[in-house]
Computed example of a mutant assay.
Amino acid sequence: MAIAKWNGVVLAESESVKEIEGNLYFPPESVNKEYLRESDTRSTCPWKGLAHYFDIVVNGEDNNDAAWSYPEPKEAAKEITGHFAFWKGVEVIP
């Protein structure tokens, strides 16, 4: 069971994560979206497409752009459509 935690709160928990380029991508239904706030940040990966970033907000603290997702990835990354990955101090336990 993979788990993503930050500031004492479980952000995501799943047995069906996908690992790509060293990052674990959690299925959308496994993510506690009440802790996510979409930011204006975007980045483009040549083979995955356009990533949308999210701030994590827990107990009044913000972790800006600490999660991302590919809502409409390119064909090569279709398996992670809508999945979420984490960084910037988020503890991800495989």
Rank of each mutant, 00 (worst) to 15 (best):
A76K: 14
R37T: 12
D65S: 12
F54P: 00
S16P: 01
I3Y: 00
V17D: 05
E61D: 13
D62C: 10
E61W: 00
K18D: 04
T41F: 06
S14R: 08
Y25P: 07
W87L: 02
V9E: 15
V9T: 06
W47M: 07
A66P: 10
E21A: 08
E15C: 06
V31N: 10
K48F: 01
I56N: 08
A12D: 07
E61C: 08
F84P: 06
R37K: 14
P27K: 01
I93E: 12
V31T: 08
S30F: 01
A66V: 13
E38T: 09
G8D: 14
H52L: 04
G89S: 15
D40S: 09
N64R: 06
L11D: 14
N7K: 15
E38G: 01
K88Y: 07
K74D: 12
V90L: 12
S16R: 11
G82N: 07
K33A: 13
W6Q: 09
W47Q: 05
N32C: 14
A66M: 13
W6N: 01
E38M: 12
I3F: 02
K74A: 02
W47P: 02
L24H: 01
G49I: 11
R42V: 13
I3P: 01
V10P: 06
N23G: 02
S14K: 02
E29V: 03
G8N: 07
C45D: 14
L24R: 01
I80C: 05
Y53C: 02
S16D: 13
P27A: 00
S69P: 11
P73V: 10
R42D: 05
E72C: 05
P27D: 03
P71V: 03
E19F: 06
E72Q: 06
A76E: 15
D40K: 01
V31W: 08
I80M: 04
I93M: 10
S69F: 00
D40W: 03
A77F: 07
L50D: 07
Y25L: 13
W47I: 03
N63D: 03
E79G: 06
S43Q: 14
L24T: 00
L24G: 00
E79S: 13
E91D: 14
Y70H: 00
W68P: 00
F54R: 04
I20N: 13
L50Y: 00
K33C: 10
S16M: 09
W47N: 00
G60H: 10
Y53V: 04
K74I: 00
N32Y: 01
N23L: 11
I56W: 05
S16K: 12
S43I: 02
Y35A: 12
Y53P: 04
E38W: 05
A12E: 11
L24S: 03
